[in-house]
């Protein structure tokens, strides 16, 4: 999808959030000189093209009681990493799962997944279960719990 000038104006207008008003797309259109129908049409197109991944809310998981937040990193042989990643990503307790480059010799891990929970003990149980059911006992791994959070905000692109 090629973005035109109006799309860029639209993205700039909504990237910090939608207006909390009865007709939010109409209100956005009023600010940038488009009709409500035009805004709805373009936002749908942006979502269909995957430029908008989803619409909705982002929770501050910490404030909602999900205070135990583990990044589990694995050193999976390259020829198996995509298959293992797909399996881990399909598990309910895994909230994010990515393949990333190793940074040898300091950092040998190439598969990262996030597991959030209300208590550290529970998160460790989830990880033990994952290791058993996905047969990952031989795969080197590390569990990095988060400590202090210094900053959380959405990314801005324009």
């Amino acid at each position: 999808m090629v973005l035109n000038k109006q799309d860029c104006q639209l993205i700039a207008q909504i990237q910090d959030g939608l207006p909390l008003t009865s007709r939010p797309y109409g209100e956005v259109g009023r600010r940038i000189g488009l009709s409500e129908d035009q805004v709805i049409h373009r936002v749908k197109a942006l979502q269909a093209a995957g430029i908008i991944k989803r619409m909705g809310v982002v929770v501050r998981h910490h404030e909602l009681g999900y205070t135990a937040n583990a990044m589990v990193v694995w050193d999976v042989p390259d020829h198996q990493v995509d298959e293992v990643g797909a399996r881990l990503g399909a598990r309910d307790c895994v909230t994010l799962c990515y393949r990333r480059p190793r940074r040898l010799p300091d950092w040998p891990y190439n598969l990262f997944c996030m597991i959030h929970g209300r208590r550290r003990e529970r998160v460790l149980e989830y990880i033990d279960q994952l290791v058993i059911t996905e047969q990952l006992g031989e795969v080197p791994r590390k569990v990095l719990f988060s400590g202090r959070r210094f900053k959380q905000r959405g990314a801005r692109y324009q």
Partner: peptide, 19 residues
């Protein structure tokens, strides 16, 4: 602050950005 955002979540790379 229970919610940090309401609205669209953008795909950074498809907007030309990097993460």
């Amino acid at each position: 602050g229970l919610l940090s955002r309401f609205g669209p979540m953008f795909h950074a790379e498809r907007l030309g950005g990097a993460l």
